[in-house]
Amino acid sequence: MHGEYKMPGGKLVVVDLAISDGCLAQVQVSGDFFLEPDDALHAIDAALEGQDAGADEHMLATAIRVQLAPGVMMYGVSPEAIAVAVRRAIDQGAAA
Protein backbone atom coordinates (compact mmCIF):
# COMPACT_ATOMS: atom_id res chain seq x y z
CA MET A 1 0.00 0.00 0.00
CA HIS A 2 1.27 3.38 -1.01
CA GLY A 3 0.43 6.94 -0.01
CA GLU A 4 1.91 10.32 -0.92
CA TYR A 5 1.48 13.78 0.53
CA LYS A 6 3.08 17.01 -0.58
CA MET A 7 3.35 19.11 2.56
CA PRO A 8 2.23 22.65 1.69
CA GLY A 9 5.37 24.77 1.45
CA GLY A 10 7.40 21.62 2.13
CA LYS A 11 8.50 18.46 0.40
CA LEU A 12 6.95 15.19 -0.73
CA VAL A 13 6.38 12.44 1.82
CA VAL A 14 5.88 8.90 0.52
CA VAL A 15 4.78 5.95 2.62
CA ASP A 16 4.79 2.30 1.64
CA LEU A 17 3.36 -0.20 4.08
CA ALA A 18 1.43 -3.41 4.60
CA ILE A 19 -1.27 -4.24 7.12
CA SER A 20 -0.92 -7.36 9.17
CA ASP A 21 -3.59 -8.34 11.75
CA GLY A 22 -4.92 -4.78 11.74
CA CYS A 23 -1.49 -3.25 12.42
CA LEU A 24 0.98 -1.38 10.23
CA ALA A 25 3.87 -3.53 9.00
CA GLN A 26 6.92 -3.10 6.73
CA VAL A 27 6.55 0.66 7.01
CA GLN A 28 8.87 2.68 4.80
CA VAL A 29 8.78 6.46 4.89
CA SER A 30 10.64 8.20 2.07
CA GLY A 31 10.72 11.48 0.18
CA ASP A 32 12.74 14.48 -0.91
CA PHE A 33 12.77 16.09 2.53
CA PHE A 34 15.69 16.78 4.88
CA LEU A 35 16.42 15.19 8.26
CA GLU A 36 19.33 15.67 10.61
CA PRO A 37 20.76 13.32 11.68
CA ASP A 38 19.98 11.00 8.79
CA ASP A 39 19.37 7.90 10.92
CA ALA A 40 16.23 9.57 12.30
CA LEU A 41 14.45 7.99 9.32
CA HIS A 42 14.83 4.56 10.95
CA ALA A 43 13.31 5.88 14.17
CA ILE A 44 10.31 7.21 12.22
CA ASP A 45 9.75 3.86 10.45
CA ALA A 46 10.09 2.05 13.77
CA ALA A 47 7.61 4.41 15.47
CA LEU A 48 4.97 3.57 12.87
CA GLU A 49 5.59 -0.17 12.79
CA GLY A 50 2.85 -2.01 14.69
CA GLN A 51 0.53 1.01 15.05
CA ASP A 52 -3.19 0.25 14.80
CA ALA A 53 -4.37 0.65 11.19
CA GLY A 54 -7.36 2.54 12.60
CA ALA A 55 -5.19 5.20 14.26
CA ASP A 56 -6.01 8.74 13.20
CA GLU A 57 -3.53 11.34 11.98
CA HIS A 58 -3.13 12.87 15.42
CA MET A 59 -2.29 9.52 17.01
CA LEU A 60 0.18 8.66 14.25
CA ALA A 61 1.91 12.04 14.48
CA THR A 62 2.19 11.68 18.25
CA ALA A 63 3.66 8.19 17.88
CA ILE A 64 6.37 9.62 15.61
CA ARG A 65 7.04 12.62 17.81
CA VAL A 66 7.65 10.62 20.97
CA GLN A 67 10.15 8.36 19.16
CA LEU A 68 12.29 11.20 17.83
CA ALA A 69 15.45 11.88 19.78
CA PRO A 70 15.88 15.43 21.05
CA GLY A 71 17.77 17.54 18.53
CA VAL A 72 16.39 15.85 15.42
CA MET A 73 15.80 18.53 12.79
CA MET A 74 13.18 18.23 10.08
CA TYR A 75 13.05 20.46 7.02
CA GLY A 76 10.21 20.22 4.53
CA VAL A 77 8.56 17.45 6.54
CA SER A 78 6.81 17.04 9.90
CA PRO A 79 5.26 14.25 11.97
CA GLU A 80 1.84 15.56 10.86
CA ALA A 81 2.75 15.41 7.15
CA ILE A 82 4.04 11.85 7.55
CA ALA A 83 0.81 10.93 9.34
CA VAL A 84 -1.24 12.25 6.39
CA ALA A 85 0.77 10.10 3.97
CA VAL A 86 0.31 7.05 6.23
CA ARG A 87 -3.46 7.56 6.35
CA ARG A 88 -3.55 7.95 2.58
CA ALA A 89 -1.66 4.69 2.15
CA ILE A 90 -4.09 2.88 4.45
CA ASP A 91 -7.26 4.43 3.02
CA GLN A 92 -6.32 4.23 -0.65
CA GLY A 93 -5.01 0.71 -0.14
CA ALA A 94 -8.31 -0.26 1.47
CA ALA A 95 -10.28 1.29 -1.40
CA ALA A 96 -8.19 -0.43 -4.11
Binding site: K11, D16, V29, S30, G31, F34, L35, Y75, G76
Partner: peptide, 30 residues
Protein backbone atom coordinates in the same frame (compact mmCIF):
# COMPACT_ATOMS: atom_id res chain seq x y z
CA UNK B 1 18.35 11.99 -2.21
CA UNK B 2 19.34 10.37 1.08
CA UNK B 3 15.70 9.65 2.03
CA UNK B 4 14.19 8.82 -1.34
CA UNK B 5 12.84 5.42 -2.27
CA UNK B 6 14.93 3.86 -5.03
CA UNK B 7 12.06 2.00 -6.68
CA UNK B 8 9.61 4.90 -6.35
CA UNK B 9 12.00 7.42 -7.90
CA UNK B 10 13.89 5.55 -10.61
CA UNK B 11 12.86 3.36 -13.51
CA UNK B 12 15.82 0.99 -13.18
CA UNK B 13 15.22 -0.67 -16.54
CA UNK B 14 15.16 2.69 -18.36
CA UNK B 15 18.32 3.78 -16.54
CA UNK B 16 20.09 0.59 -17.69
CA UNK B 17 18.87 1.07 -21.24
CA UNK B 18 20.27 4.61 -21.35
CA UNK B 19 23.53 3.62 -19.63
CA UNK B 20 22.80 5.79 -16.60
CA UNK B 21 24.38 5.03 -13.23
CA UNK B 22 22.05 5.32 -10.23
CA UNK B 23 23.66 6.55 -7.00
CA UNK B 24 22.43 7.80 -3.64
CA UNK B 25 23.97 10.92 -2.11
CA UNK B 26 24.50 11.71 1.56
CA UNK B 27 22.11 14.70 1.62
CA UNK B 28 18.33 14.86 1.45
CA UNK B 29 16.32 16.45 -1.33
CA UNK B 30 15.13 15.19 -4.67
Amino acid sequence: GRFQSLRNEVDAEAARRHGIEVVRRVSGGG
